[in-house]
Design a protein around this nucleic acid. Structure first.
Lengths: 131, 131
DNA sequence: TCCGCACTTTACGTTAACGTCAACTTCAAT
DNA sequence: ATTGAAGTTGACGTTAACGTAAAGTGCGGA
């Protein structure tokens, strides 16, 4: 089902619950590169993966520009010069640092949610006792 | 040092590396509630905590409106009715689900970074062998 | 043949989250 | 007394990430 070779714009829109407008916008921004049959877009499974990665990036708070940067690094890996490859490794390291920061942020947030939930339950218990 | 009672706008700006403009904007948006000495803002340590939470939220991809929602829930916990408290618990659950999603996204991203780094190193090795 | 649906481009509108002046006031220091 | 640093309030500008409306193309079915 998902190893199909090509996809229409509305198929992808439904699968990932985004508007066709967004998908066209992502193409304009250079994140997707569909081919054309006449004027209608034909998306490859590579495009489908990239759309998935783009949306994942959004959930993680990445801008489209940041995601595009990742994509271009990815693409240059095969053809790049030594200097480019070393720069790519640096970018990878920076991403890892970001992820560590995010994991820390999530852990902190979880602690706060725990505290908050406990206080909610206490307040509820007191309310019910007072009735 | 950080258990001081009050802070000026520029102290907070420096500590968290944001502009004073942003801090004033957060006040306008109802995220911070400094008192005034004449017209000069005085931030409490509670404001300082909220600023920290606001910035953490940003790193996690939350909008200011979402963060404000969390704050108001937090505030209502002490005084809220039973219905409000139950709704607050639901919001907490939704947040937890979001965090689970983000943890999954991060794990996926880490796998991709691993793969990408490996391919970079392979490409580098081949380049150096060919020289 | 005409209808309707999916798709297209073009272009202007919108919201969030600030940035950037401009034109002050206040206060401490020279 | 003046100057400079830090603070203030408007008000308009900007960027990202789309929304939305207008006007047209292409195509399979009744």
């Amino acid at each position: 089902m998902s190893d199909k070779k090509t996809f229409s714009i509305s198929e992808l829109a439904k699968e990932f619950d985004v508007t066709t407008r967004s998908i066209r916008f992502y193409e304009d921004e250079g994140l997707l590169h569909p081919t054309r049959n006449g004027q209608t877009r034909i998306f490859s499974s590579k495009d489908r993966v990239r759309l998935k990665l783009t949306l994942r990036g959004k959930r993680m708070g990445f801008s489209l520009a940041e995601t595009r940067e990742l994509f271009s690094l990815w693409d240059e890996t095969a053809t790049g010069s030594e200097k480019q490859l070393l720069m790519a490794l640096e970018v990878v390291e920076r991403r890892r640092a970001q992820l560590e920061q995010q994991k820390h942020d999530i852990a902190m947030m979880e602690i706060e949610l725990d505290n908050h939930e406990a206080r909610c339950r206490e307040a509820l218990a007191e309310l019910r006792q007072a009735s």
